[in-house]
Structure formats: C-alpha cells, structure tokens
Design a protein around this nucleic acid. Structure first.
Lengths: 214, 214
DNA sequence: TATAACTTGCACATTGCTGTGCAAGTTATA
DNA sequence: TATAACTTGCACAGCAATGTGCAAGTTATA
C-alpha cells in the first residue's frame, strides 16, 4: 500500500450550489411566512432537513444570511441610483425595490417583529438614509410635499411601497405593471397628483420597463 | 342539617370583567406580536396563565374572539360613515380606522399569515367592499384617479393606512397628528396632490379633530 | 476509478409552548 | 358569614421544532 496520506479535497461544486439554493429557497419561503421551519426551507430547496444543517449552524444562521444577503443586494442597487430631479430619483428608488421584490419582502417581514428587528433595521439603514436624503432635497426644490416631516414621509413611502409589493405578489401582477405601480405609489405619497405622476413617468424613459442598471 | 341543596350561583361580576381584560390585553399584545403566547397575554392582563384557561378553551379561541371583536367594532364604525363627496367619505373611512388603531393593527397582523387568514378576510369584507364602493364612485365623479383599478387601489389605500398606523404607533404620534396623517395618506394614494389634500381637510370641519361619531 | 465530499434517513435529547387536573387559597355575594 | 365562584401555583402529558450523531448510501473529481 502507498502512504495513507490524508488528502484534503476542496469543497465540491454542487455543495456550493446547494448552499445558494437553500438561501434562495429561504428568501422565497420566509417572504411568505417568516415563521417557516427549517423543514419548510429544506423542502423548498429539495433537500433533506439534515443536509441543511450541513451548510448552516442552525435556523438563525439561515435567517441571518438571508437578511444580510437581501439587504446588501438592495444596498448595492440603491447606491447606483442618482438623478438631478429628486422626484425621478425617488421613482428610481421605488423601481429598485421592485427589482428585488422577494428580498425586499423577506426583509420587511422581519423588520418589525422578532429578535432580528435590530439587525434588519441596521441593514436597511443605507436605503432609509438615502430615501430621507432624496426627500429632503425634493422638499428644498419644492418638488415634494412639505406638510409631513421628511423622516415620517420616508417611512410612509417605504410602507406604501411594501404594500404595493404585497398586492403585486398576491395578484400575480406582470413585471411592467408592478414596476409602474411602485413608482406611482411613491410619487403619490410624495405629494404629486396622479396625473402629474403619470406624466412624469411618461416623460422620463429611464422610468420605463427595463430600468437603469442590470 | 338542612337539605344539601345544590345551588347554582350566577357568574361573578369580576369574572366577566376579567374576561374583558383578557381580550383587551390580547388585542394590545397581539397587535405588537401576533405570535404572543398565552403566558404573554395572561401577564398583560395581570392574571395567571391558568386563569386564562378558565375563560377560554385555548389560545385559538382567544385569537378568534379578539379578531371577531375588532372586526365588528370597525364594521360598526364604518357603517355609519357617509358623505356626498367620495373623497370626504374616503377620508372619513381613514379617520374611522384611526379611531380603532389597536384593533385595526391586531387584525392587520393576522390578515396575511397564519391559519386565521380566511376568517380575518371575511371579517374585513364589509370595510373592503365599502372602500371599493366609495372609490368607484369617486372615479365616476372624476374625483379619484382612474389609472389604477378600483380593487387594486382599495388595497393600496388600505396598505398605506396601515403603514401610517404602524408609524404613528412607533413614533408615539399625537392623536390629532395621526388622525390627519391617515387622511392625508388615503387622499394622496387616491390621486390628490398634497396641497389639494390639505385644502380638502381644511375646508371640511367634519375631517378635523373629533370626527363624526363618538 | 478510488476516494473524499456530500446527502439521506433514522434515532435521540432538548426546548418551549399548549392544555388539563388538582389542592389550597382568596373574594364576591346570596 | 357561609358558600360557591374564582384565582393561583404546581405538576404533568403532549406536541412540534431544533439541533446532533451515526451508518449507509450517492456523486463529483483528483
């Protein structure tokens, strides 16, 4: 016999894939039911519960990873949004959220209740501060309502957007329709009349279907 | 000895009171955390867990009663709302919801997830159909936006209102401020410009502080 | 193709919550 | 004030979910 050398092989490719699959499944399942069990997640990932524990130390770790992941995806998208017109920028922020519906909803489900509140709040901080910034600018430019404090207004726009995301999911809305609806919701809450909002969208090609970045 | 007559005394007054206290506590606790345990509810009611089981057959019964109760309170309030101007009526519906914040939020927490979905949906049906009605009338009168289907719009207004309720609770907003904010949110989502919404409120005393009914 | 990486299924201990029984108190009220 | 109504605390069984160990498979890859 040759030497019984202890060889360390690298992680197998399919294992790494499965890890991703689990996180995707978690995002999908948790966005519907934030109390979903490890078994539920495993089933959605077409893996055994036991295998899941091979990838994550426990349910909390899965939730944590899912949230961190969703938050950073959104943060990244949000960072690249910019426009001279605060209203257009606001609309683009809404569109960004729409592009990440599943992640956004998973986050939203944990934003209020449960022991992950703080973590989620921290993870969403970039989006929120960005939103407040844009709103403050819009108020200065007289484009956005001044009868509600920017901080409060930011929360209301955020809440309204999530309501749209829920309704869009529930009604299996088309991508185009959902895209436009999130934008309309944000602009309306920001103070625009509906005709004004429609017009703004129509006159800015960047707000149409494909949105700016990939 | 006299006859060992088996006497049936009526329920004691404090017991009936305790039942009410439990339901109030449940509404408060469940509006914050829909997964609250029987122990949490008992603690909020300043009673032992065991005593709670003396009043209700189980957690489900408590939840069920709480929801039914909240729904009927809201349904009653909603039924008395009426105004020739659809926009004003919409605003009044919002104010009604505000007057029942705790119950409304408790309901909302169960409207989406869990096995009580159907029950809650059924209980909220009157409010929703009323909302859709009012919206449809507003659209006919050219007072409400026509770019979003009335059914969808109803859901968005509902969602927006709940977002306000959440934010108002979180920020410990004053009654007046919350009242006005819910109305503003509804009118904005309905398509009004913010100046238009402010003006509408100011020109209709019925939309001010004390709202119509008690 | 040999082998380590990975998955699976099962068993098992643990935890937290539900719901019930009972004995010993406390409190409203006939 | 006697007594039934009510509350309390404790013990206990049941259940669902978590997290771990292990033996026997399957699959990627060196």
């Amino acid at each position: 016999m040759t030497a019984p050398a202890i060889i360390d092989r690298p992680q197998r490719r399919d294992a790494a894939e499965n890890r991703e699959i689990i996180l995707s499944a978690a995002a999908a399942v948790l966005s519907i039911n934030p109390d979903a069990s490890v078994d539920d997640i495993a089933a959605a990932a077409s893996l055994s519960r036991r295998a899941v524990y091979g990838h994550f130390s426990g349910r909390d770790a899965i939730v944590e990873q899912t949230l961190t992941r969703g938050a950073s995806r959104i943060a990244t998208s949000v960072a690249s949004v910019e426009h001279e017109d605060a209203l257009v920028e606001l609309a683009l922020l809404g569109a960004t959220l729409w592009a990440e519906v599943n992640h956004a909803r998973a986050l939203a489900n944990f934003a209020l209740r449960g022991p992950h509140r703080r973590q989620v709040a921290a993870a969403l901080a970039p989006l929120r501060s960005r939103l407040e910034e844009t709103i403050a600018r819009g108020v200065r430019d007289n484009d956005i309502r001044s009868d509600i404090a920017p901080k409060t207004l930011a929360r209301l726009i955020e809440g309204g957007a999530l309501a749209v995301l829920d309704e869009a999911t529930r009604a299996r809305m088309s991508l185009q329709r959902g895209h436009r609806l999130v934008i309309l919701s944000a602009l309306s809450t920001a103070g625009m009349s509906w005709r004004g909002a429609e017009k703004l969208i129509d006159t800015h090609p960047i707000l149409h279907v494909s949105m700016g970045a990939k």
